[in-house]
Protein backbone atom coordinates (compact mmCIF):
# COMPACT_ATOMS: atom_id res chain seq x y z
CA UNK A 1 0.00 0.00 0.00
CA UNK A 2 1.50 3.35 -0.98
CA UNK A 3 2.43 5.24 2.10
CA UNK A 4 0.40 8.39 1.51
CA UNK A 5 -2.75 6.37 2.08
CA UNK A 6 -1.34 5.51 5.50
CA UNK A 7 -0.67 9.15 6.27
CA UNK A 8 -4.17 10.13 5.15
CA UNK A 9 -5.78 7.42 7.26
CA UNK A 10 -3.73 8.42 10.29
CA UNK A 11 -4.69 12.06 9.87
CA UNK A 12 -8.38 11.23 9.49
CA UNK A 13 -8.32 8.93 12.52
CA UNK A 14 -6.59 11.58 14.61
CA UNK A 15 -9.17 14.12 13.46
CA UNK A 16 -12.02 11.78 14.42
CA UNK A 17 -10.70 11.62 17.99
CA UNK A 18 -10.15 15.37 18.21
CA UNK A 19 -13.60 16.44 19.52
CA UNK A 20 -13.36 13.81 22.26
CA UNK A 21 -10.30 15.54 23.65
CA UNK A 22 -11.19 19.15 22.95
CA UNK A 23 -14.40 20.82 24.09
CA UNK A 24 -13.55 24.46 23.64
CA UNK A 25 -16.02 25.69 20.97
CA UNK A 26 -13.51 28.19 19.58
CA UNK A 27 -10.87 25.53 19.03
CA UNK A 28 -13.50 23.29 17.47
CA UNK A 29 -14.50 26.14 15.18
CA UNK A 30 -10.91 26.52 14.01
CA UNK A 31 -10.67 22.77 13.45
CA UNK A 32 -13.86 22.90 11.37
CA UNK A 33 -12.40 25.71 9.27
CA UNK A 34 -9.19 23.76 8.73
CA UNK A 35 -11.16 20.76 7.45
CA UNK A 36 -13.34 22.99 5.29
CA UNK A 37 -10.21 24.40 3.68
CA UNK A 38 -8.69 20.95 3.34
CA UNK A 39 -11.65 20.11 1.11
CA UNK A 40 -11.36 23.33 -0.89
CA UNK A 41 -7.60 23.20 -1.30
CA UNK A 42 -7.65 19.52 -2.27
CA UNK A 43 -10.33 20.18 -4.84
CA UNK A 44 -8.43 23.12 -6.34
CA UNK A 45 -5.29 20.99 -6.32
CA UNK A 46 -6.94 18.55 -8.72
CA UNK A 47 -7.06 21.34 -11.28
CA UNK A 48 -3.86 23.21 -10.48
CA UNK A 49 -1.78 20.16 -9.66
CA UNK A 50 -3.17 17.50 -11.97
CA UNK A 51 -4.70 19.27 -14.93
CA UNK A 52 -1.77 21.68 -14.67
CA UNK A 53 -3.84 24.74 -15.50
CA UNK A 54 -4.28 27.63 -13.17
CA UNK A 55 -7.90 28.24 -12.22
CA UNK A 56 -8.78 31.54 -10.58
CA UNK A 57 -12.47 30.75 -10.79
CA UNK A 58 -12.75 27.97 -8.29
CA UNK A 59 -14.97 30.11 -6.07
CA UNK A 60 -17.59 29.68 -8.79
CA UNK A 61 -18.11 26.09 -7.61
CA UNK A 62 -17.87 26.96 -3.94
CA UNK A 63 -20.57 29.58 -4.52
CA UNK A 64 -22.80 27.39 -6.67
CA UNK A 65 -22.68 24.73 -3.97
CA UNK A 66 -23.40 27.20 -1.17
CA UNK A 67 -26.32 28.84 -2.96
CA UNK A 68 -27.69 25.46 -4.03
CA UNK A 69 -27.65 24.11 -0.48
CA UNK A 70 -29.12 27.33 0.91
CA UNK A 71 -31.95 27.44 -1.61
CA UNK A 72 -32.75 23.74 -1.36
CA UNK A 73 -32.92 23.98 2.42
CA UNK A 74 -34.85 27.24 2.55
CA UNK A 75 -37.22 27.03 -0.39
CA UNK A 76 -37.61 23.29 -0.88
CA UNK A 77 -37.16 22.26 2.73
CA UNK A 78 -34.58 19.60 2.00
CA UNK A 79 -32.73 18.14 5.00
CA UNK A 80 -29.03 18.79 5.46
CA UNK A 81 -27.95 15.26 4.56
CA UNK A 82 -29.53 15.77 1.13
CA UNK A 83 -28.61 19.39 0.45
CA UNK A 84 -24.86 18.98 0.81
CA UNK A 85 -24.53 16.09 -1.68
CA UNK A 86 -26.95 17.90 -4.00
CA UNK A 87 -24.72 20.98 -3.74
CA UNK A 88 -21.77 18.86 -4.80
CA UNK A 89 -23.71 17.37 -7.70
CA UNK A 90 -24.90 20.76 -8.96
CA UNK A 91 -21.41 22.20 -8.72
CA UNK A 92 -20.11 19.21 -10.68
CA UNK A 93 -22.68 19.94 -13.40
CA UNK A 94 -21.52 23.57 -13.41
CA UNK A 95 -17.97 22.22 -13.60
CA UNK A 96 -18.90 20.16 -16.64
CA UNK A 97 -20.33 23.22 -18.35
CA UNK A 98 -17.51 25.61 -17.47
CA UNK A 99 -14.87 22.96 -18.07
CA UNK A 100 -16.23 22.23 -21.55
CA UNK A 101 -15.56 25.87 -22.40
CA UNK A 102 -12.41 26.66 -20.46
CA UNK A 103 -10.41 23.47 -20.86
CA UNK A 104 -9.98 24.24 -24.54
CA UNK A 105 -7.89 27.21 -23.47
CA UNK A 106 -4.44 27.30 -22.00
CA UNK A 107 -2.19 29.44 -19.85
CA UNK A 108 -3.33 33.02 -19.38
CA UNK A 109 -6.55 32.49 -21.31
CA UNK A 110 -7.63 29.71 -19.00
CA UNK A 111 -6.79 31.84 -15.96
CA UNK A 112 -8.77 34.82 -17.18
CA UNK A 113 -11.80 32.94 -18.40
CA UNK A 114 -12.16 30.93 -15.20
CA UNK A 115 -11.88 34.19 -13.29
CA UNK A 116 -14.49 35.71 -15.61
CA UNK A 117 -16.94 32.92 -14.85
CA UNK A 118 -16.60 33.51 -11.11
CA UNK A 119 -17.14 37.24 -11.67
CA UNK A 120 -20.18 36.63 -13.85
CA UNK A 121 -21.67 34.43 -11.16
CA UNK A 122 -20.93 37.04 -8.51
CA UNK A 123 -22.73 39.67 -10.57
CA UNK A 124 -25.64 37.32 -11.16
CA UNK A 125 -25.89 36.62 -7.42
CA UNK A 126 -25.83 40.35 -6.83
CA UNK A 127 -28.53 41.18 -9.35
CA UNK A 128 -30.91 38.23 -9.54
CA UNK A 129 -32.73 39.40 -6.48
CA UNK A 130 -35.80 37.17 -6.87
CA UNK A 131 -33.72 34.07 -6.25
CA UNK A 132 -30.55 35.12 -4.47
CA UNK A 133 -31.93 38.08 -2.54
CA UNK A 134 -29.18 40.19 -4.16
CA UNK A 135 -26.49 41.79 -2.04
CA UNK A 136 -28.48 41.05 1.13
CA UNK A 137 -27.82 37.37 0.60
CA UNK A 138 -29.69 34.42 2.04
CA UNK A 139 -29.73 34.48 5.83
CA UNK A 140 -31.03 32.04 8.41
CA UNK A 141 -30.24 28.88 6.50
CA UNK A 142 -31.56 25.98 8.57
CA UNK A 143 -29.00 23.73 10.21
CA UNK A 144 -31.20 20.64 10.52
CA UNK A 145 -29.87 18.00 12.83
CA UNK A 146 -26.46 19.68 13.02
CA UNK A 147 -27.22 21.24 16.35
CA UNK A 148 -23.81 21.76 17.88
CA UNK A 149 -20.21 22.34 16.89
CA UNK A 150 -19.23 18.75 17.45
CA UNK A 151 -21.80 17.48 14.98
CA UNK A 152 -20.62 20.08 12.49
CA UNK A 153 -17.11 18.87 13.05
CA UNK A 154 -18.07 15.31 12.17
CA UNK A 155 -20.07 16.51 9.18
CA UNK A 156 -17.11 18.38 7.72
CA UNK A 157 -14.83 15.50 8.63
CA UNK A 158 -17.08 13.22 6.60
CA UNK A 159 -16.92 15.61 3.66
CA UNK A 160 -13.13 15.80 4.00
CA UNK A 161 -12.87 12.02 4.19
CA UNK A 162 -14.93 11.64 1.01
CA UNK A 163 -12.81 14.31 -0.68
CA UNK A 164 -9.49 12.76 0.26
CA UNK A 165 -10.71 9.30 -0.67
CA UNK A 166 -11.83 10.43 -4.12
CA UNK A 167 -8.63 12.43 -4.67
CA UNK A 168 -6.55 9.47 -3.58
CA UNK A 169 -8.41 7.12 -5.89
CA UNK A 170 -8.11 9.52 -8.77
CA UNK A 171 -4.40 10.14 -8.32
CA UNK A 172 -3.62 6.45 -8.02
CA UNK A 173 -5.80 5.38 -10.90
CA UNK A 174 -5.11 4.93 -14.56
CA UNK A 175 -7.14 8.09 -15.20
CA UNK A 176 -4.94 10.02 -12.76
CA UNK A 177 -1.80 8.79 -14.51
CA UNK A 178 -3.38 9.94 -17.75
CA UNK A 179 -3.94 13.41 -16.30
CA UNK A 180 -0.33 13.61 -15.11
CA UNK A 181 0.84 12.54 -18.56
CA UNK A 182 -1.20 15.33 -20.16
CA UNK A 183 0.21 17.82 -17.67
CA UNK A 184 3.78 16.69 -18.32
CA UNK A 185 3.51 16.48 -22.10
CA UNK A 186 0.40 16.80 -24.18
CA UNK A 187 2.04 15.24 -27.20
CA UNK A 188 3.33 12.17 -25.45
CA UNK A 189 -0.03 11.74 -23.76
CA UNK A 190 -1.86 11.70 -27.08
CA UNK A 191 0.65 9.36 -28.63
CA UNK A 192 -0.14 6.76 -25.98
CA UNK A 193 -3.87 7.08 -26.54
CA UNK A 194 -4.88 9.61 -23.89
CA UNK A 195 -7.64 12.05 -24.80
CA UNK A 196 -6.25 15.24 -23.22
CA UNK A 197 -9.58 16.98 -23.05
CA UNK A 198 -11.42 14.04 -21.51
CA UNK A 199 -8.70 13.47 -19.00
CA UNK A 200 -8.63 17.11 -17.88
CA UNK A 201 -12.41 17.17 -17.79
CA UNK A 202 -12.60 14.35 -15.26
CA UNK A 203 -10.24 16.13 -12.87
CA UNK A 204 -12.03 19.44 -13.41
CA UNK A 205 -15.52 18.09 -12.77
CA UNK A 206 -14.33 16.17 -9.72
CA UNK A 207 -12.64 19.31 -8.38
CA UNK A 208 -15.78 21.36 -9.02
CA UNK A 209 -18.02 18.81 -7.31
CA UNK A 210 -15.82 18.66 -4.22
CA UNK A 211 -15.72 22.46 -4.00
CA UNK A 212 -19.52 22.35 -4.21
CA UNK A 213 -19.65 19.96 -1.25
CA UNK A 214 -17.51 22.42 0.70
CA UNK A 215 -19.87 25.22 -0.33
CA UNK A 216 -22.92 23.25 0.79
CA UNK A 217 -21.36 22.62 4.16
CA UNK A 218 -20.36 26.27 4.48
CA UNK A 219 -23.90 27.49 3.84
CA UNK A 220 -25.30 25.41 6.70
CA UNK A 221 -22.44 26.13 9.05
CA UNK A 222 -22.38 29.92 8.64
CA UNK A 223 -26.18 30.01 8.00
CA UNK A 224 -25.62 32.83 5.53
CA UNK A 225 -24.65 33.00 1.85
CA UNK A 226 -24.10 36.25 -0.05
CA UNK A 227 -22.42 37.27 -3.32
CA UNK A 228 -19.18 37.73 -1.36
CA UNK A 229 -18.67 34.00 -1.52
CA UNK A 230 -17.52 34.48 -5.13
CA UNK A 231 -14.99 37.12 -4.22
CA UNK A 232 -11.31 36.87 -4.72
CA UNK A 233 -10.20 36.55 -1.10
CA UNK A 234 -11.46 32.96 -0.82
CA UNK A 235 -9.65 32.27 -4.05
CA UNK A 236 -6.46 33.83 -2.71
CA UNK A 237 -6.60 31.65 0.41
CA UNK A 238 -7.13 28.49 -1.63
CA UNK A 239 -4.29 29.17 -4.04
CA UNK A 240 -1.91 29.99 -1.25
CA UNK A 241 -2.79 26.78 0.56
CA UNK A 242 -2.14 24.68 -2.50
CA UNK A 243 1.09 26.49 -3.32
CA UNK A 244 2.54 26.59 0.16
CA UNK A 245 1.77 22.96 0.80
CA UNK A 246 2.88 21.72 -2.58
CA UNK A 247 0.73 21.38 -5.66
CA UNK A 248 0.37 18.03 -7.35
CA UNK A 249 0.65 16.14 -4.07
CA UNK A 250 -2.12 14.77 -1.85
CA UNK A 251 -0.60 15.80 1.46
CA UNK A 252 0.58 19.27 0.40
CA UNK A 253 -2.85 20.98 0.31
CA UNK A 254 -3.63 19.56 3.75
CA UNK A 255 -0.49 21.09 5.22
CA UNK A 256 -1.23 24.32 3.39
CA UNK A 257 -4.83 24.43 4.62
CA UNK A 258 -3.75 23.98 8.23
CA UNK A 259 -0.99 26.62 8.12
CA UNK A 260 -2.98 29.24 6.25
CA UNK A 261 -6.16 28.79 8.29
CA UNK A 262 -4.25 29.23 11.53
CA UNK A 263 -2.40 32.23 10.14
CA UNK A 264 -5.66 33.76 8.92
CA UNK A 265 -7.25 33.26 12.30
CA UNK A 266 -4.27 34.75 14.10
CA UNK A 267 -4.41 37.84 11.90
CA UNK A 268 -8.18 37.97 11.71
CA UNK A 269 -8.58 41.52 12.94
CA UNK A 270 -5.90 42.80 10.62
CA UNK A 271 -7.32 42.07 7.20
CA UNK A 272 -4.89 44.27 5.25
CA UNK A 273 -1.84 43.12 7.15
CA UNK A 274 -2.92 39.53 6.65
CA UNK A 275 -3.34 39.92 2.92
CA UNK A 276 -0.09 41.88 2.69
CA UNK A 277 1.64 38.93 4.28
CA UNK A 278 -0.16 36.53 1.92
CA UNK A 279 1.06 38.52 -1.03
CA UNK A 280 4.61 38.33 0.23
CA UNK A 281 4.27 34.62 0.92
CA UNK A 282 3.02 33.92 -2.59
CA UNK A 283 5.94 35.82 -4.11
CA UNK A 284 8.43 34.12 -1.82
CA UNK A 285 7.04 30.66 -2.54
CA UNK A 286 7.18 31.23 -6.30
CA UNK A 287 10.76 32.50 -6.09
CA UNK A 288 12.25 30.21 -3.49
CA UNK A 289 10.05 27.18 -2.92
CA UNK A 290 8.21 26.44 -6.15
CA UNK A 291 7.28 22.94 -5.04
CA UNK A 292 5.90 23.90 -1.66
CA UNK A 293 6.67 22.87 1.88
CA UNK A 294 6.32 19.23 1.04
CA UNK A 295 9.43 19.46 -1.11
CA UNK A 296 11.41 20.39 2.01
CA UNK A 297 10.98 16.96 3.49
CA UNK A 298 13.16 14.68 1.41
CA UNK A 299 11.81 11.66 3.22
CA UNK A 300 8.33 12.65 2.19
CA UNK A 301 9.35 12.88 -1.41
CA UNK A 302 8.36 9.29 -1.91
CA UNK A 303 4.83 10.34 -1.10
CA UNK A 304 4.57 12.60 -4.05
CA UNK A 305 1.88 10.96 -6.07
CA UNK A 306 3.90 10.98 -9.18
CA UNK A 307 6.60 9.17 -7.36
CA UNK A 308 4.93 6.09 -6.06
CA UNK A 309 3.74 2.73 -5.68
CA UNK A 310 6.90 0.99 -6.57
CA UNK A 311 6.42 -2.68 -7.32
CA UNK A 312 7.59 -4.89 -4.55
CA UNK A 313 10.98 -6.24 -5.47
CA UNK A 314 9.73 -9.80 -5.16
CA UNK A 315 7.34 -9.10 -8.02
CA UNK A 316 10.17 -8.08 -10.20
CA UNK A 317 12.16 -11.15 -9.25
CA UNK A 318 9.51 -13.37 -10.70
CA UNK A 319 9.75 -11.81 -14.10
Amino acid sequence: MPSDSRILLTLLAAAALFPLAVHDPYVLHIAILVLFYVVLASSLNLIVGYVGEFSLGHTAFLGVGAYAAALLAQKAGWPVWATIPAAGALAAVAGGFIGAITLRLKGPYFVIVTLSFAEVLRLVANNWIAVTNGPMGLAGIPQGFLQDKRLFFYAVLAVAAVTLYLCYRFVHSNAGRGAVAVRESRFVAQSIGINPFGSAMLAFVLGAGLAGLAGGFYAHYITFVGPDIFQFSFMASMIIMVLIGGKGTLIGPIIGAAIVTLLEEYLRDMQELRLTLFGLIVMAVVLFLPNGIISLAPKLKRLRPHAPARPVSADRGVL
Binding site: F54, V111, I239, T276, V282, M283
Partner: peptide, 22 residues
Amino acid sequence: GEEPGILFTIGLSIFLANVTLL
Protein backbone atom coordinates in the same frame (compact mmCIF):
# COMPACT_ATOMS: atom_id res chain seq x y z
CA GLY B 1 7.09 29.32 -18.64
CA GLU B 2 3.97 31.32 -17.89
CA GLU B 3 2.85 29.81 -14.64
CA PRO B 4 5.45 31.23 -12.22
CA GLY B 5 4.87 34.68 -13.73
CA ILE B 6 1.13 34.39 -13.22
CA LEU B 7 1.53 33.29 -9.61
CA PHE B 8 4.17 35.85 -8.83
CA THR B 9 2.16 38.76 -10.18
CA ILE B 10 -0.94 37.56 -8.32
CA GLY B 11 1.12 37.70 -5.13
CA LEU B 12 2.46 41.11 -6.09
CA SER B 13 -1.05 42.40 -6.74
CA ILE B 14 -2.35 41.22 -3.36
CA PHE B 15 0.71 42.74 -1.69
CA LEU B 16 0.51 46.13 -3.40
CA ALA B 17 -3.24 46.51 -2.92
CA ASN B 18 -3.06 45.81 0.79
CA VAL B 19 0.07 47.83 1.51
CA THR B 20 -1.71 50.74 -0.13
CA LEU B 21 -4.78 50.09 2.01
CA LEU B 22 -2.58 50.09 5.10
